[in-house]
Write a protein that binds this DNA or RNA. Structure first.
Length: 491
RNA sequence: GAGGGUAUAGCUCAGCUGGUAGAGCAGCGGCCUUUUAAGCCGUUGGCCGAAGGUUCGAAUCCUUCUACCCUCACCA
């Protein structure tokens, strides 16, 4: 850093502003490198970050990188002004430059800009990690890759500069979200925004973050889900509403969980969960088609076939398939015994639903590699879902699973206000029994239901997990630009 | 919350059973007018994550702490 400050002073003493205001780029690097024939002998203006520099006395080669790729520069002392040549000598890797010059091809065949002028656009003071790569046949070998995960996550800006495949991940993330938006817009659904700060949290079983509103002197919760507000809007008369937003859950962190994460929820009036299954498989496969041109993708070495229709399996059938036990109608004691036989630990306050859910997560979930809808859950696990039309002990709910993980949750929404009140009261009891993830009673939501909500299908999709699937990333941190980290010590 | 692993130069890493810190790249000074992990010659750079302890002597052994990674637990 010392040397760079000295250079900064030298550059200033040449009468050059090291932080000028703009530069008129004529083309991106790849426009030129991919259409070299059209550009030969033509003058272009390119800009970007200096990524390598190979000096040869009175001449020099370098690469600059812009947002789309890299292009080589060739600087000759006899082709530019003395001051520009001196300036070029003072440039460091990482500096941002603008170059005017002519396109030509070197004798090794690389498209290159022969500089006529060199302009410094921003002087860097910190050295960039130097990553080098070499082409060995078809293989690209990378040397000294900037790979320390802590540094990469804490200094994502450096990660993005130096690791192009990381940039690609976030481009794909953006595409996925944009496709989802288009998908719903095309169906005529309305994108809405609902409160992040909520006096009563609900819509999911999770512990919330608590905050305080000074003027009102009251506790508020950061939302754990958008569900109850979105359904109020269905009561209000919209046919379809969706929201893509951050939710916050005060739970542990691992490669599938970040305290704040992106959720997409959609509610559609006059539909049920069968409709929603078709919507999910259509949406996910069409995203794959848009991004990869096909509905079969590879994730962590496994081929995943997203082509609809996806497999549909009832929850109890799936458990029987993998454990040989039919849990339907079993008493609490019987369930505890089964869990014990399967070496699954249970808590005292757990009821039937929770034990079934636990057995399912342990024994079935990891096996659900290809896309599968697990359907028809016990009613006490799903306080906001409508009872199954054929069996009041179950609800019309499904969760889509891919690569052993759930990526969403959906149901025919409960719109019977009396049943809903009873479900809330059952949750209250769980709260008292020590289940700190049980849901709060929301009187205003009940009032809304009393005004009447049409039959409605609802869905939540974890966007981060979907992006992990589409970008072939093993950890949620790799699809979040700034994953949550403990604060670092001050330098 | 539990267990395991990692922490050495700006980056990537060596450093054996304790003997006083090393390479490549980057940087700095030279040479070099088509190189591309450019090359050649020379050279700077370290509180060995933090604090304590054992020892004549600690990057190395011990303890505690911190951060990150992995697995599990919790959990969409």
């Amino acid at each position: 850093m010392r040397g760079r400050r000295d250079k900064l002073e030298q550059i200033k003493s040449l009468g050059i502003n090291p932080y000028p205001y703009n530069f008129k780029r004529s083309h991106f690097s790849v426009e030129i490198t991919q259409n070299t024939d059209d550009f030969l002998e033509k003058e272009v203006q390119v800009s970007g970050r200096l990524m390598s520099k190979r000096g040869h006395g009175k001449t020099s080669f370098a690469h600059i990188m812009d947002s789309k790729g890299r292009i080589q520069l060739y600087v000759r002392k006899d082709r530019i002004s003395e001051q520009d040549f001196e300036l070029f000598g003072l440039l460091d890797i990482g500096d941002i430059v603008g170059i005017k010059g002519e396109v030509f091809v070197t004798r090794t065949g690389e498209t290159t800009v022969k500089a006529k002028s060199v302009e410094l656009l921003s002087k860097t003071l910190r050295p960039l990690p130097i990553v080098k790569e070499k082409q060995e046949g078809d293989e690209k070998v990378v040397f000294d890759q900037f790979a320390d995960k802590e540094l990469r996550y804490r200094q994502r800006y450096v990660d993005l500069i130096v690791n192009p495949e990381v940039r690609d991940v976030f481009v794909t993330r953006s595409k996925v979200i944009s496709k989802i938006r288009h998908f719903f817009d095309n169906l005529g659904f309305l994108e809405v925004e609902t409160p992040v700060l909520q006096p009563i949290y609900g819509g999911a079983s999770a512990r919330p973050f608590v905050t305080h509103h000074n003027a009102l002197d009251m506790e508020l919760y950061l939302r754990v889900a958008d569900e109850l507000y979105l359904k109020r809007l269905i009561v209000g008369g919209y046919d379809g509403v969706y929201e893509i937003s951050k939710d916050f859950r005060n739970e542990g962190m691992d490669r599938f969980h970040n305290p704040e994460f992106t959720m997409m929820e959609v509610y559609v009036a006059y539909q049920d969960y069968h409709y929603m299954m078709e919507l999910v498989e259509t949406m996910v496969s069409s995203i794959a088609k848009d991004i990869y041109g096909k509905t079969k993708i590879t994730h962590q070495g496994r081929e995943i076939d997203l082509t609809p229709p996806w497999k549909r399996v009832k929850l109890f059938d799936s458990i029987e398939e993998y454990t040989g036990e039919n849990l339907y109608g079993k008493s609490l004691d019987e369930l505890r015994k089964v869990a014990k036989d399967l070496h699954i630990e249970t808590e005292d306050f757990w009821r039937e639903g929770k034990i079934i859910d636990e057995i399912f997560s342990e024994k079935v979930e990891p096996n659900l590699i290809q896309p599968t809808f697990i359907t028809d859950y016990p009613v006490e696990l799903s306080p906001l879902a409508k009872r199954h039309r054929d069996d009041p002990k179950l609800v019309e709910r499904f969760e889509p699973f891919i690569v052993g993980g759930e990526i969403g949750n959906a149901f025919s929404e409960l719109n019977d206000p009396i049943d809903q009140r009873e479900r809330f009261l059952a949750q209250q009891k769980l709260l008292e029994l020590g289940d700190d993830e049980a849901q709060m009673l929301d009187n205003d939501y009940l009032r809304a239901l009393e005004y009447g909500m049409p039959p409605t299908a609802g869905l939540g999709i974890g966007i981060d997990r979907l992006v992990m699937l589409f970008t072939d990333q093993p950890s949620i941190r790799d699809v979040l630009l700034f994953p949550h980290m403990r604060p670092e010590k001050n330098e």
